[in-house]
């Protein structure tokens, strides 16, 4: 176990490969409660926007209309060519600050090449498996759904042809 300790740290140090991979090991792109609409499409429930507490101490700007903070989901690309993966989320009053927060939270160490920042309320989710993975035979959509070994043998027999040998290019056309 003594050697193990060094490994613990190394594990972390290989972070781009470790800590980061983790940020999206679920396929769920949203982290929130939701409700299901009639057609099974699940809308994300923001859980209600958070109204900022004016805070302890008095505001210098009385009468200023209070906005709301809301969650923005952050997707990140670790290096050019990689897929975008869910990284986490931030709370922000608007899209511009959400970008600043996302940059600070998800690429402070230069660990991303691109961030997508999306208002959580704008994400539409379907996770009804009756829709996504209907219990029907969809074998016709997959290569494995076409098994013709026996039929092919029958067809060759009927044509009086032998099974071609590997690399046999057939008889050249004259």
């Amino acid at each position: 176990m003594t050697d193990n300790g060094e490994r613990m740290i190394d594990e972390g140090e290989r972070g781009t490969d470790n800590g980061e991979r983790g940020t999206d090991n679920g396929d769920h792109t949203t982290d929130n409660g939701g409700h299901t609409t009639d057609n099974g499409e699940r809308m994300i429930d923001e859980g209600g926007p958070v109204v900022a507490d004016p805070g302890i101490g008095s505001s210098d700007q009385p009468g200023e209309p209070a906005g709301t903070l809301e969650p923005y989901e952050v997707f990140r690309q670790e290096k050019d060519g990689d897929p975008m993966r869910h990284g986490g989320n931030v709370m922000a009053p608007d899209a511009e600050l959400a970008l600043h927060y996302a940059r600070e939270m998800f690429s402070r160490r230069g660990e991303s090449t691109r961030l997508w920042v999306v208002r959580r309320a704008d994400i539409r989710v379907i996770e009804d498996l009756d829709l996504l993975q209907p219990p029907l035979d969809r074998s016709f959509k997959k290569p494995g759904g076409y098994v013709m070994r026996d039929k092919l043998t029958a067809a060759r027999d009927r044509a009086g042809m032998a099974k071609p040998k590997a690399r046999d290019r057939g008889t050249p056309l004259v």
Binding site: M8, I9, E11, G12, E13, G15, N18, G19, E20, R21, G22, T23, D24, N25, G26, H28, D31, G87, G88, R109
Partner: peptide, 28 residues
Amino acid sequence: QQALRDSSYGPYARTMQKICWEESVHIM
């Protein structure tokens, strides 16, 4: 925290992976 990377609560487990990565620098 490393033992929490496998927490049953998905968002916590994923957050811990990011956190552990950063913590390893602090230890060094």
